[in-house]
């Protein structure tokens, strides 16, 4: 789509992944450019989170090649700010918001970590950016779902990442909070690449630049639209439903390419 040559942030080539003999991804290709703001959509169990974890080197594909900033993700994952799903962490863990954000300052190749003045300054900036500095001494358990999510984003930002990968960041956030969150992300996107797994198709038209639909195979569409192919791939719902307002988006006609048969 884009005529200007852009630098590549991440790519997958022929990547397959199985979980307990169940094929989750099959021969998937992807090229994510720097400064893209990509939404990953698709049905539950379709491989959205798996895709993210493969890009970060947390899961190893059965076959295929993964590059993150030109190298294997084991070497470059620390350049990405990762915002995992909220349900992942132990909710009652005794930790303050500030200490969570400081974890974003941990670096590879160093043990016996101590946080320096720079680390504290970066954590303060990140918390401030997410408007969570006043809550820094609260236990994570005392924060609302939306506040916790902001702390996780601040933790990801504290390392000054080149990209931000978020896994369903709005799952426990109310509608107001969602709009807030996405406008924050839009600001951040002026400097860094953003990849966000979402169920929320509302965000597509107003914030993102491209849409990645995953359901065992993958379609990457370089515009903030859901195409009929994606609907066939992702939701198996007839395109006519769109007319009834389930998805407030433009539907593109068939635009050629391998997935439009």
């Amino acid at each position: 789509m884009n005529s200007q040559p852009t630098k590549e942030a991440a790519s997958l080539r022929g990547v397959s992944f199985s979980y307990n003999g169940h094929r989750v991804l099959e021969g998937v290709d992807l090229r994510l450019e720097e400064r893209d703001f990509a939404a990953v959509i698709g049905p539950n169990g379709g491989g959205k989170t798996t895709l993210l974890k493969i890009l970060l080197g947390l899961l190893r594909p059965r076959s295929g090649k993964v590059l993150l900033f030109g190298e294997s993700p084991e070497r470059t994952a620390h350049l990405v700010g990762y915002v995992p799903q909220d349900i992942h962490a132990n909710k009652h863990f005794p930790i303050s918001a500030l200490d969570v954000v400081l974890m974003g300052r941990l670096r590879p190749g160093r043990l016996f970590h101590r946080y320096s003045r720079d680390d504290h300054r970066a954590a303060e900036e990140a918390l401030d950016r997410m408007e969570m500095w006043p809550e820094r001494h609260k236990r994570m358990e005392e924060l609302s779902g939306g506040q916790r999510q902001r702390v996780f984003i601040a933790r990801a930002l504290a390392s000054n990442p080149r990209a931000l990968f978020l896994d369903e960041p709005t799952a426990s956030v109310d509608a107001m909070g969602q709009t807030d969150l996405y406008s924050h992300l839009k600001d951040l996107n002026e400097q860094i690449t953003i990849l966000v797994v979402t169920h929320d198709l509302m965000v597509l038209s107003s914030y993102v630049k491209s849409v990645i639909c995953v359901n065992r195979s993958l379609i990457h569409h370089h515009a903030p639209e859901v195409t009929p192919d994606m609907l066939r791939l992702g939701y198996r719902c007839p395109v006519e439903l769109l007319g009834h307002g389930h998805l407030p988006h433009r539907v593109l006609p068939c635009h050629g390419g391998p997935c439009c048969e």
């Binding site: 974890k53 080197g57 947390l58 995992p84 969570v100 974890m103 941990l106 590879p108």
Partner: peptide, 10 residues
Amino acid sequence: YDDEFARVRG
């Protein structure tokens, strides 16, 4: 607290 995040941090 979060082993996956720690792994991403190296």
